[in-house]
């Protein structure tokens, strides 16, 4: 099942400059594994030391936040569009 993954600029050094890549996966955890297999180093940028999605990294499936779809177990199907988006925040 081909899933389209939109890659933010800071990760494109790992995708050969590609803004979008396609991988086969049936859930978000599988997607991260597939990304790591084809673009080594991506997993460490998406997961923290405990293997969970980093707190300031958001993953969206068809514009739905995966945190509300089951997290790493969120199912994926052919044609889904996954967006990896940094959480941008800060202040004084």
């Amino acid at each position: 099942m081909a899933i389209r993954v939109q890659v933010p600029a800071p990760l494109r050094s790992l995708t050969g400059g590609a803004a979008e890549v396609s991988v086969e996966a049936s859930d978000v955890a599988g997607l991260v594994d597939a990304l790591e297999a084809s673009h080594k180093g991506l997993r460490d940028r998406l997961y923290d030391a405990s293997g969970e999605l980093r707190s300031y990294v958001r993953v969206f499936v068809n514009e739905e936040d995966v945190r509300f779809l089951g997290g790493k177990a969120a199912p994926l199907k052919a044609g889904d569009v996954v967006a990896i988006v940094p959480a941008i925040a800060g202040g004084l």
């Binding site: 933010p8 800071p10 940028r45 980093r54 707190s55 300031y56 990294v57 990896i84 941008i88 800060g90």
Partner: peptide, 9 residues
């Protein structure tokens, strides 16, 4: 926040 996310460059 930048250190925890995707901010390189």
């Amino acid at each position: 926040v930048a250190a925890g996310g995707l901010s390189d460059g």
